[in-house]
Structures are given as C-alpha cells and as structure tokens.
Nucleic acid binder design. Structure first.
Lengths: 342, 342
DNA sequence: ATCCTCCGGTAAATCGCTCGACAAGGCAAG
DNA sequence: CTTGCCTTGTCGAGCGATTTACCGGAGGAT
C-alpha cells in the first residue's frame, strides 16, 4: 500500500490540486457537487493529508505543548489529571493536538521550552510546572511566543496565567477553622510555588487579624512534592513542636491525608482531638475516614479555561491574560468545633 | 524579531544551505572547524530548525502517539502515571516527543488512531486504551503502521504488545491466599479487558486445582473503571452473597482499597476476619491501614520496554513484538492465615 | 449586444529543510 | 606528472501541502 498524496486524489477525482486542498479544508469556495466527488475519492483511499506538509505551508502546527512538573512519578498526581483532562477536552474540540512534556532538568537545560515554540512544533505552551525557581521563564516576557502558566502565577514577571485564587482559598479555609473556634492551628505549607506562598501568607494574615480573637499559626514545610508522605512527616513535626494545636491545615489534600494518617497511627482522633483540612477537594477526600474538609478547586475548569485562553492568544484575539478562578468551601467530617473552645 | 531560517544561518556563516543542515544533524561529513563556525551563528540567533519542514523532508515526525483510556478523569489513575513516565523517559532520550490522546468515543469514531499515523503526525503508536471492544484495532493487523498495545493483549488479533504477565500474577496471588489456608475466596474482577479476563480465569483455575484442597471462588465484576468506588460496591455484593468468605482478591489495588473501605465501614476486621489482596502494588498500597498485600507490577518498566519496542519497530529492527514481563508477590498486613483454617 | 459581477475552479509560487549526486582540492602512489 | 582516492563542502531536486492571484463562463442590468 503506497503512500498517497493530495496529488493522487486530484488525478483520480479529475480536479486540480488546489481544489482538493480547498475541499479538505472545508473552504466555502467549493460547490457541494465537487466537494462530494472529491470526498468520495478521499474516503475510498482513506486518505489523510500529510501534516508536516500542512504545517509547513500553513505555518501552524495545530499543536499545544503541555509541560507538567517533574515529580517523581508525575501523573500519579490527581491534580494534574483534572487539569490535563480539561485541556484535552478543549484542545481536541478546536482541532488541536497535545504534545506532552515533563519539566526535567534536561528539559530546562536544553531549552526545550523555547525550542518547542521556536521550531514551531507547537503553536503555544501551557506550563503547569512553574515553581519559584523558574527564572528561565523570563524568555517569555514580551516575546512573540504564546505562553501561559496554568494554575500558577509568577509575581514580578509579565507572564500570562489562569489560576485558581489561592489567596481566596486561604481566606475560606481560615475563616472556616476560626469560625469553629480554633486558635492554635498547624499549617502544612507548600513553599516551592508562588501560589503556595500566597496561600500560606494569606492564611496566616487572616488568622492574625481575626476579629473574634487572633489565632496562632505554626507552620512547617510539607516538602517539594506536596505528597502524602510529606504531609505525614510534617504532621509529626508539627505535633512534636506544638502538641496542643487543635487543627491542622494542609495546603493540599494529599498532605492533609498524610497528616490524618499520622494522627491515626499515633492515636489522635480526627476531628475530636485535631481537626484536619485540605485544599483541592480531590476525589479521595470523600473517601478517607472521616471525610476530609477541603476547599474545592475545580482544576478541570482551570484546564478548560487555560486552553481557551491560549487559543485566544494564538489567534491574537487577546494580548495577555491573567485570570483568577473562584473556589469554595467543602465541609466534611474532618473538621469540628475546637475542643475546649468557647 | 523576525523568524529565521536555515538560509539566514547559511548566509551569515558563509556556508551553503546544505552544510548548515548537515551541521544541525551532526553529520560526520563536516569538519570540526566548519561545525564550530556554523554553530556560533546558530547560538547567536538561538536558532531552531522548523520541525514541519524537517518532518516533510525527512519523512519522520520523531513523535510517538500515546493513547490512554477514557476513564472519567483519566490521569487520576496512578497506573497510567507510571506507564507514561516510563515512556517519556525513553522517548525523550531518543529524541522523540509524545503526542497525547484520550480514547474518547469521538477519537474512535473519527478514526483518529489511524489518522495520526496516516498523516505522519506520529511515527508510531503506543496504545494503553485497549479493552475487549476495541475491534477497530484490526486496522493495525499486517498494516505498515507501527502500533503496540501497552499492558494489554488482544487474543485473536495479530497485534504487537508489551504487558505484564497477568496470568502469572493470578497464579502468585492464588498461591499466596491458598497457602494461607483460604478456601472461600471472593474475587473482584475486571472484565472489560482481556488481561482482566486472563487474570480471573487463571485465578479461578488455580483455586480449583489446588493440591491441598480445591477452593471456592465467588466472583463479581468490579466495574469498568477498576475504581475504589467499584471495589466498594463489589465488596458489598460479595459479602451479601457469600457472607462466610475469608478472603477478597481484587484485580487491582484501587478496587482492593475500596473493598477494605467497605469492610471497615461494616466493622469487619482486615485481615482477622477477611484477608484482602490487590494487584499492581501502587504507592497507596503501603499507605492504607493495614498495608495492602499485592502483586507488584512494574508499570514504569512496562513503559520503558514498550517505548524501546515501538522504536525498534519504527527503525525496522524487529518485525513484531509480544513481551510478557514478570511480576512478584508483595506481602503486607492485609492478608493472614484464614480464620478457622487448618 | 455590451459590460459587469459573481461563482467555481486552477496555476504556480511558496513554506524550510534533507539528502543523494557531484565537485574541488590535497596528497600518496605509480 | 598523472592518476586515483579521500575528505569536505555544495547543488538542486524534491517532500506534500496551502494560498493568492487569475480566469472563463453564466447571468443580470442597461
């Protein structure tokens, strides 16, 4: 079975090269009759136009680059799943394909992030892998490349982004715990992203300034990976350091679940002795015992929106983008009124 | 900043178009001196050759298509994470990029799976999304397209595959439980994949034929998604149906964890009353309480191996491929000697 | 009948790079 | 001094589409 080209289709259908091309691109210029006759041949051979040739001539690859963080086994992260599903959904519906990359040391070092766009392998880039050391992203400030941070921000750099509003989440979480009377709160923070820092700072700020009586916050770092394991260790550290705290707030659900696990292993009842709260509202949050109170982050929606935006940037419909999406409180069994609270 | 081409580099460096091309492809034909002078200009402009043009001229996209199943939020699945990480690792080291797709209804219906290869958008396809209804994959039997099933098999079709040996896993699991004296076993099976069926059949066969006394196996379907939720429901059904069983075997860890959850909710002690066992040995297996006994499936390795194979197929180094990778038993706290057992 | 629009289709110039065939120059051997 | 070979670089013909400008003919208006 020899490889066919548009030329073969043209010959067989009796029309010109250009006509076939126009048909393949649904150009209105072509009459229905011609269209049908050409398509019959296309179907007959199950012909699909060469995409490299297409890309070369049209100067567009119809491809989006998606860069995810280099966590050890990265996709285990539910967080990414939602995001990518959302992106895929939008991208596909617009005829775009997704090129997947992991932000490994090698990826950064070899400048793959700019190579992808410079070589036109991708028309735009959705970057989910940002952290506070991603200084190399400066290339994209005022560049002609279409670039967007997904669920991240980079204060001080002019970079497009679509993200959940982490400061708002911090506020919701703090208000929930404070409202339950908690005044000694342990915070397991993620400090390797700007959104993580925003969350921590805002959370502490709200606790300090609470009208009904300021609360103490002891915070520890939950580790680079925001993992269950990290949350487990962090809880241990927190409880050793401040044995009398009545609530633990973790910057994501996985760390919160790790913390709950430590508390269970050490015979501390949740929520009777210690309330625990997470962020993201991953599926598993409803499945642990007791159910984990959380802040709902609709990452699927962030994926959809990010993709919408990057496509608009590519089409030139917008010049830049900085969206913050709202979040909401989800109360389950893991948080309750502080023991000994008023 | 205007878009540069290889021609600009040629002009500026004083060499011909072809020379620059050869330099960029590390062709040995070119002397070090020339190479250096050309590369200086390339670096100066941070030039990256247009990949569409490259693909067109070289008839190779240096891209691999990876197709994952259409579970609701697909990447939440740890299973896939390992696989994709392994694939990415290999692919990248060989200069290949990864094009990601989800096997949605639309994907199947529009024949994207063949379009990707026919349009040369990808040089080969790694298909992780197979199930027993994937009949459309017949296109790839004896086709010129480079296609490989990842961690799946398709009895009756001549398709390349690299998979963990599910029958061997079934044997290991059965022998473990039987060795602990279990004679009434509930099986939560996955019946929408051939590997799932192989596992079920082999498990039952070993139980029936056990030398020290054949065991009864009651099996139920864990659902299409092999999820925690499915495992939970399946456990309920199983215990209602056969209240006196002493062990539950689930075809993957997530269903096993769901089952454990049901047992906990219904005050049945694990493993004292009911032993529970899973398959895959996902990270979470060590994190539940008690730790989940499982069969270790090194999916990362499957990813690596799959990628190796598809690259060999592409290069024509091999003509077909059917690899089964070994598995091993991991004993944790969730399985113990059957109560009332001999 | 003449002129002017549309309408539907086509010719041909790209797009930016690869690679096999060819050429020039240097050097060793005959 | 040829001849022949080796090394290094260049020519130029594609690769398979897109897209702009052009063109012939059918109607409609004058």
């Amino acid at each position: 079975m020899k490889r066919r080209t548009i030329k073969d289709i043209a010959k067989e259908s009796g029309f010109s090269l250009s006509t076939v091309s126009l048909v393949l691109n649904n150009h209105p210029r072509i009459s229905q009759a011609t269209r049908d006759r050409v398509m019959a041949v296309v179907k007959k051979y199950n012909f699909f136009p060469n995409s490299a040739a297409r890309g070369l001539a049209s100067k567009s690859s119809k491809t989006l680059s998606v860069v995810v963080p280099n966590l050890t086994r990265v996709f285990s992260d539910i967080y990414l799943g939602e995001l990518i599903s959302g992106i895929y959904e939008r991208a596909t519906s617009q005829g775009y394909k997704i090129l997947l990359d992991i932000a490994t040391a090698q990826f950064i070092k070899s400048q793959e992030y700019v190579k992808l766009l410079a070589s036109r392998r991708a028309d735009g880039m959705l970057f989910i892998a940002s952290d506070i050391h991603a200084d190399y992203l400066s290339v994209f400030e005022d560049s002609p490349y279409k670039f967007l941070l997904v669920n991240h921000v980079y204060p001080g750099k002019k970079l497009n982004y679509v993200s959940v509003d982490y400061a708002a989440s911090a506020r919701l979480a703090a208000e929930h715990l404070l409202g339950l009377g908690h005044r000694k709160i342990g915070l397991i923070a993620g400090t390797n992203t700007f959104t993580g820092l925003q969350f921590r700072d805002e959370f502490i700020k709200v606790c300090k300034g609470w009208p009904a009586g300021s609360a103490q916050v002891a915070w520890v770092d939950g580790g680079e990976e925001w993992s269950q394991r990290g949350g487990y260790a962090a809880a241990a550290k927190l409880m050793a350091q401040t044995p009398d705290l009545t609530a633990i707030m973790a910057a994501n659900d996985r760390m919160a679940i790790g913390a709950m696990r430590w508390l269970a292993d050490n015979r501390r009842d949740v929520p009777e002795e210690v309330s625990v709260m997470g962020v993201d509202d991953i599926q598993l949050a409803a499945y642990v015992n007791p159910g984990l109170s959380s802040i709902r982050h609709d990452l699927y929606q962030v994926g959809i929106e990010s993709c919408n935006r990057i496509l608009q940037l590519i089409k030139g419909e917008i010049a830049d983008c900085s969206d913050l999406l709202p979040t909401s409180l989800v109360v389950r069994g893991s948080t309750t009124r502080a023991r000994g609270g008023k």
